[in-house]
Amino acid sequence: MWEKLFYREKGLFLQSLHPAAMLAYLLVFLLLCLLYENPLYLLALFFLLALLNLEAEGREAWEGFLKGGLLLVVLIMVVNSLVIRAGSTVIWSGPAVPLWGKLQVSLEALYYGATSGLRFLVLLSLFCLYNLVVSPDKLLSLLAGFAYYSVLAVVLATRFFPVVVRNLLRIKEVQELRGVDFNQGTLWERVQKYSSLYGVLLLSSLEDAMGIAESMQARAFGSGKRTLYRHHLWRPRDTICLAGSLGAFSLALWGWFHGYGRYEFYPEADVLIKDAATVGILLLVCLGLSLPLLLSKGWKRWPFLRSKI
């Protein structure tokens, strides 16, 4: 259950990209999603990410992410629509609340809330994709050059995490049979029952830590200057994807400064499509961002393409 979202190597095209290229690509997505205010643009990003998540064989994980996010979306909408009084189209007017003023909900506020919710869903989809295609190993080995100790400690913690969980479940069983019923008693009593479980686990884990330290010591840890073992292939596909993301990003920035992708909700919402360029720029940005998706599809279908990229 706790491992459902852990990275799994499935031999996908998207997983074979160089971590730097992939991270640059995802970063562009992140920036655009936070930059854009126009619902149409956000919708396009969402659509693209949906396709990418499916391409990464992550339907289940993605649905899980979205389901988890829906509650927050509703919360965002409620907060926004209750708080904002800048909208001009009031659709509900409630009683006055002390210290707060009159409650009212405007169509624009609701609209803005929905857009914020959509932005949140885009973010979720983006990170779901990240979890599917970037392995922690690759990410951390990329960072190891900058901060050796922090990365090594995080790597060790990640490797030790499943051990702790497994020990936890086993010790819980052991204690259940020693007469500890974890599901009974008042809250305070239950917390106290956990204290025995907790103590065993903490002691065992820290003893393991001493053993690990010994093994590190025996393998010359901290014995002087060290080097880094890192090996990631850079293929033509990485160049293409990097070019695509950078191109899309530059174009998006240019568009942003010329007003494309911006959007005013208050006092009255803008029209969604101001001119043809609004759609044109969006299409071009999406094209740049969909290069990995297209390559992935082609890579699966044509052996010829496979050998070239």
Binding site: L140, L152, L156, G211, R230
Partner: peptide
């Protein structure tokens, strides 16, 4: 050592093999 859980440091097999070599400062 005795317990395999108490002597592995990395998340990935290949990186684990390289761990000692990194500490010795060998060239890539």
């Amino acid at each position: 050592f005795q317990d395999p859980e108490r002597q592995l440091v990395k998340t990935q097999v290949e990186a684990e093999v390289a761990f000692g070599l990194e500490n010795l400062g060998l060239p890539l």
